[in-house]
Design a protein around this nucleic acid. Sequence first.
DNA 1: ACCTCCGGGACTGCCCGTTTCT
DNA 2: AGAAACGGGCAGTCCCGGAGGT
Lengths: 200, 200, 200, 200
Amino acid sequence: VKAAVPTSRAAAADRTRRALIEAATKRFAAAGAVTSFDAVAADVGVTKGALYHHFGSKDGLVEAVYVEAVNQHARRVIAASGAGDGAGRMLAVIDSSARLYTSRTPFYRLLIALHHDAATTRPSLAPIARRVQNAQRDYMIGLVRNGQADGSIRADLDAEALGLTVNAALMGFLVQQLEPVAAQRHWIAKFRNLIQETIA
Amino acid sequence: VKAAVPTSRAAAADRTRRALIEAATKRFAAAGAVTSFDAVAADVGVTKGALYHHFGSKDGLVEAVYVEAVNQHARRVIAASGAGDGAGRMLAVIDSSARLYTSRTPFYRLLIALHHDAATTRPSLAPIARRVQNAQRDYMIGLVRNGQADGSIRADLDAEALGLTVNAALMGFLVQQLEPVAAQRHWIAKFRNLIQETIA
Amino acid sequence: VKAAVPTSRAAAADRTRRALIEAATKRFAAAGAVTSFDAVAADVGVTKGALYHHFGSKDGLVEAVYVEAVNQHARRVIAASGAGDGAGRMLAVIDSSARLYTSRTPFYRLLIALHHDAATTRPSLAPIARRVQNAQRDYMIGLVRNGQADGSIRADLDAEALGLTVNAALMGFLVQQLEPVAAQRHWIAKFRNLIQETIA
Amino acid sequence: VKAAVPTSRAAAADRTRRALIEAATKRFAAAGAVTSFDAVAADVGVTKGALYHHFGSKDGLVEAVYVEAVNQHARRVIAASGAGDGAGRMLAVIDSSARLYTSRTPFYRLLIALHHDAATTRPSLAPIARRVQNAQRDYMIGLVRNGQADGSIRADLDAEALGLTVNAALMGFLVQQLEPVAAQRHWIAKFRNLIQETIA
DNA sequence: ACCTCCGGGACTGCCCGTTTCT
DNA sequence: AGAAACGGGCAGTCCCGGAGGT
């Protein structure tokens, strides 16, 4: 009964906050976290006051951006590997990574930048970076174990070794963003085939 | 015949130049290329004028640092994989990478930073970054081909696929610098075993 | 008749107002009127809006703080010099000033800051500052006149000259807050003796 | 023989530095040390870079300004009280202070601001403030001692007490800058007479 | 009526990469 | 190669308003 107007003002603030993160994400992806505070605000059409109000400091904004980015990436990976046997799900992760990385959406530079920033200029990001690294690795190893349980992956392989190798290789391909899309795609396809043969 | 005293004049300048690159390398490795010009100069005991004199601009210094860094890394890799059959040389690369990456020498952050900077704030680095990526990949593929030629690597494997996979995985491990040294070392060892079994 | 419960409504607001002045007094005494608006509000546990609601602007708050401070100081001085002959009351003012100034209560910095601010950044304070200066001087001169009337102060002294000299010297000691307490106390004691001999 | 041209390079820098201090002195005297960095630079016709180059930080500039101000004031006082017997020199200090304080040159607000800032927002000034306080007091006490030695000041007075009282009273008059010039001058004249009678 | 939330502008100090003169 | 100065930019912070809860 009292549901029509909840749009009030708290929701507007949330829209602002969301828009700021989105704008900052684009800027960061394109130019790294050296992007200026006001540029982000200007993109959304507000002033620095809003940014400062919502995130407290530049570090706060950077953190929010990275947290949102890794969450979004995690959702995509999980969605892409939701169904099928273990082998199929692992290959699906590789395939979707190939598509996403080669889409040249600047978004994916963020995933590298996070680790780099955490190690150099913004130590406060270290916990976030470590958490996402561990989550990705464990997820991949889990897929291998599932595959061995359902028989789609050879049982004599070392699950941990295979999982972290696939994970590391994907990160390596992610770093090699400067090559033409075709080349990058070609490599990941080759990699995929090698893995497919290895686990069969 | 061309030996006497002329060493003084221009050689002092060369020592300064070398010292500047070294100091800049340390700074960049620790904090990324956002390091200030004067900080580098102060480390060496000269003023900004000297930097400007030798490198023309900040970009010039950054380029010089990265070129020197990739050359140095290349020399190390080649030295570590100089002798033996193809399989042995490839495994030697993996082993030496494990040692170097886990030495926590900040130097190795440079190798990641190069690709990141080239893709974002310093497009002038792109040719350098691309060149080193290609060189590393080709070197690894070459080792695989050698191994297949001398019989130390199974001939039915796709040489290109194996080479670029190993190369990508190593880059992926390089990115994961935030984990404890022991963990990182453990992973690379697992990876090494997996490769060793695969190529046998 | 006017007692029951209405205490709640408006009295809470008055408590807030009082608490804000008190908090602002502490902050101003410690760091001058450059103290931030929110810091004061945060000390009390409210937000800037409350300050704006009660005082209209920063100037309003500053004025309220200074008015309260000078009133409080006046009450103390009058209380300390309430009884006795003229000479005794004047010496009592000196003694109580010695105690208060050397208590290192930051409160007493406010009395200097008022004159400084009034002369520089906040002209609106000038009437307040002038009023308190005149009141202090006149009070001291009045004490001398009383002393001459009751025979405790030599009648041949120029009452105005003596009063304003004592007053000025006390302000001078107030300014010299940086010295160790012992030194400051020693000086005022010497000053007191000199006055005592002079008026006898 | 080689002395004609040294005006060129380094002297221009010194002129700039001097001009910056002068401009800052005016601004500080008028509005306290909250004056903006660029405003000072703009007054001289240079940019903030020059200020930063010469003083390193705002604190550096503030310090330089105060040091220069107290030195200048000391020179004036010493010059005004250079000749005559002890009593004459002390009265000359009072007279010259009367002239200077009532000249309404904003310069003299600096002398109060120094002590205030040192006690609140700029602790780094404390040593300077303490030093100048001690120097003034000791100078005045020294004049009294000289006067007693040459017979121009009654020998039975406590030299220390008289010196620090006169010194404190002068500071007190300095604080009371808000009153009309005529009143301030009248007070100091009364004070001067009282002292003159006391020491005779 | 009292107060909170959200945001607006406007500065300020600091710093940085560069150029010019010597 | 150093000393001096330039000019642009950035993060942080501050004092205020106005819309809206309670």
